[in-house]
């Protein structure tokens, strides 16, 4: 009985930590994004509220919450609100299968820093990640507005194309690791002394492309396209409801897909890797904390990379985006699969 209680307590604490970190961080990443964007464009960015604008997200949140809740008269209120829930829940659920570090002992209780280590974790990630499309399709339909509908149709087209691509891209690491569990994939990379990016560069690049497309980041943000569609499917939303969609799409989803990229290609919480030889850890002085720091560092690096692209590139047209997916990326993933099949025995030995 005692064991069960401790287990439930551990699960509860994990859920609270994940929710707090993800949603809190999500809000604060708006500040990071504005700062990075400003410095890319040689501006200072938010400076007024707090030291270097550090309190800006709180001010923004207050402003959004206290705004009037406007609703299009001919829309469908139930679906309009349901779309919000459908956007937020799957995006946060993905973090249930993200492993943040190695197993550790805390007051005699063994804790794996992952909510559920399902043996098909990776499939769940992509199933849940792609469910965002329903939120967007519903938001577009329930608003009963042309701009919103066009935006949502575009986004659905993109997700349908890139979901296929991303699933085939991650098959390479899965073959090398021989498992679908996210925790085990990292363990395998540590055992084999190999980050899979060294053998899967094509898959990694394609994964990054597909990640940008699924999260609606530049150069694939045609569903927003503020110049032509005035921010697409969110156009009829107001106040905090308007704020929630970018929060989910641009921050929570980018974070979760970056974390999965780190798990699949960059060896999760392992330090710098020399292929087949071992690991070099310049952060050894942090002791047992170093794996967690490594994980956060890698995710932060990928996130900054996404921001860098976002504020540098122009956007593609919708037909160019889907054509690249089907005609370039998908064949490339097939080539990669064949290459992986040839290379896999070297890794398995």
């Amino acid at each position: 009985m005692e064991g069960l209680f401790v287990q439930l307590l551990v699960i509860g604490i994990k859920i609270l930590v994940i929710l707090g970190v993800v949603l809190g961080l999500g809000a604060y990443l708006t500040w990071v994004e504005r700062k990075v964007a400003a410095h890319i464009q040689r501006r200072a960015g938010p400076m007024v509220v707090g030291w270097h604008g550090l309190l800006q997200p709180l001010a923004d949140g207050l402003k959004l919450i206290t705004k009037e809740d406007i609703f299009p008269r001919t829309g469908n209120r139930f679906l309009y609100n349901l779309a919000l829930v459908l956007a937020l829940v799957p995006a946060v659920l993905v973090f249930a299968v993200v492993p943040f570090g190695p197993e550790f002992e805390f007051f005699g209780v063994k804790v794996k820093p992952i909510l559920t280590d399902v043996n098909v974790g990776l499939l769940l990630v992509f199933a849940l990640g792609s469910m965002a499309v329903y939120a967007i399709a519903l938001a577009g339909w329930a608003s009963n507005s042309k701009y919103a509908l066009i935006g949502s149709m575009r986004k659905a087209g993109i997700i349908v194309s890139y979901e296929v691509v991303i699933t085939f891209a991650v098959m390479g690491p899965v073959i090398l690791a021989g498992t679908l569990s996210t925790y085990e994939i990292v363990q395998q990379q540590i055992n084999q002394k190999l980050w899979y990016i060294w053998l899967q560069p094509i898959a990694f690049v394609i994964y990054m492309f597909a990640m940008l497309a699924e999260t609606g980041r530049v150069p694939f943000d045609v569903q927003e396209a503020e110049a032509e569609l005035v921010t697409g499917f969110t156009v009829e939303y107001g106040g905090i409801k308007f704020g929630l969609f970018p929060l989910v799409e641009w921050y929570v989803e980018v974070l979760s897909l970056s974390a999965i990229a780190v798990v699949l290609f960059l060896g999760g919480w392992s330090p710098i890797n020399i292929p087949f030889l071992g690991f070099v850890d310049p952060l050894f002085f942090l002791g047992p904390l170093s794996p967690f720091v490594w994980f956060v560092l890698k995710v932060a690096l990928l996130f900054l990379f996404v921001l860098w692209l976002h504020w540098t590139l122009p956007r593609y047209r919708i037909d160019q985006i889907t054509e690249t997916a089907w005609k370039v990326m998908l064949p490339l993933t097939f080539v990669n699969l064949v290459l992986t099949a040839v290379l896999a025995p070297i890794v398995w030995r």
């Binding site: 499939l123 199933a127 329903y134 399709a137 519903l138 659905a156």
Partner: peptide
Amino acid sequence: QLLIYTVAIAVFYVL
């Protein structure tokens, strides 16, 4: 079931 039916197939109906 989640990946194929609820996402890949049902999305076309929704579309």
